[in-house]
Design a protein around this nucleic acid. Structure first.
Lengths: 193, 193
DNA sequence: AGATTTAAGTTGCGAATCGATACTTATAAT
DNA sequence: ATTATAAGTATCGATTCGCAACTTAAATCT
């Protein structure tokens, strides 16, 4: 009966109850996607599990050896990832001992984020692209580094970027108005969210 | 001395000593960028701190209120981020109480990863782009979603992707050889790393 | 100058989480 | 019928988290 275990907490009480009775999440999920993403992906293990999943791993024991995570933690994280719709759990028909954890589209859509992190690690940690290279199937040429692209496809550096309120978006061509930039090297937006 | 504190562990003993005396990191940093990135960014707080930093936050107390993190944890994470070269610590000249934590280029380069995560959160959590929009300074038009781009700029879906050994990269135009794909929806590489 | 405030931490401690290992349960293979 | 496999669960000590109080150094106020 719900002993001190690694089961996922039924009431995920990182919820704070405001005086008004409203429930607000711990990290200001207000109107920002990042805390939401982090709530789903949580810790490093989730990333490692997702990496394994992207590599085709689908079974508990395989995640175990692919990640080196402890059994109980893995169990917990898989539950969490299923709950947040990143993985989908299903039992195999032919061998009912086996359970399949497969990526959903939602999970697949984390690929750019994963690649961006990987490439960052390659650039600053390894100094070199890791060996198996991700290529365009058509011509076998490596993909570009994940980057920020303008609407017309140009790659933008920090200096080319600016945060703007939805309200005053330009209509293609208009020079950008908005408050002048400041202190930070090249750019200084008000919010990443 | 060295009481049970939140100071960063001098010997960050997530290091395993192999029988051969070699030191290997816990997560297989072998030749993969992702574990390296995760080692630096570690937990969710690091992401939140980085978000704040990208938003122009530079002072301890400001990180405190921007993230809602606890003081001791913040202290620990700032140390860690400085150690891994993502932030740079410097004391202000005019007011020597104040310390400036500023993003390095290395830290700035995490922007694509952060944006990819944010956009994922927007897509699946909010359903809508968060309000301050990141735009091209030149024309005030919003940036493209972070995605995987082919060498020629086309946006690639999972089905268009394939992992390939460095050795047999195609020379622009050659149809892609390599082992045929399998089980996973559309693609199935051997390794994300 | 002396008292107060501000900025950036540090310390202590209870609560929660992690991680290694052992155990369980259900199904399949021999 | 026994053994092996897959996917968990349970236990428990070690670690980490997070709140709150305390410290230290430099600036500001009276």
């Amino acid at each position: 009966m719900q002993p001190i275990s690694d089961k996922i907490s039924q009431v995920p009480d990182n919820a704070l109850h405001s005086p008004m009775g409203k429930v607000r999440e711990q990290l200001d999920d207000q109107d920002c996607g990042l805390p939401l993403a982090l709530e789903a992906m949580g810790d490093r293990w989730c990333f490692m599990i997702l990496r394994a999943a992207l590599n085709g791993v689908q079974h508990f024991e395989d995640f175990l050896s692919a990640t080196g995570i402890a059994r109980n933690i893995l169990s917990n994280r898989l539950l969490r990832l299923v709950e947040s719709g990143i993985l989908q759990r299903q039992q195999m028909e032919d061998d009912r001992r086996k359970v399949l954890y497969r990526l959903t589209d939602k999970g697949m859509d984390l690929l750019p984020a994963m690649l961006a992190l990987r490439q960052w690690g390659e650039k600053y940690g390894l100094g070199v692209p890791s060996n198996p290279v991700l290529v365009d199937k058509r011509d076998c040429l490596p993909i570009q580094p994940i980057a920020v692209h303008a609407h017309d496809g140009r790659v933008l550096a920090k200096e080319d970027l600016q945060w703007l309120d939805k309200a005053n978006l330009g209509k293609a061509g208009e020079p950008c108005s908005g408050p002048a930039e400041a202190d930070l090297p090249g750019w200084r937006g008000d919010m990443l969210c």
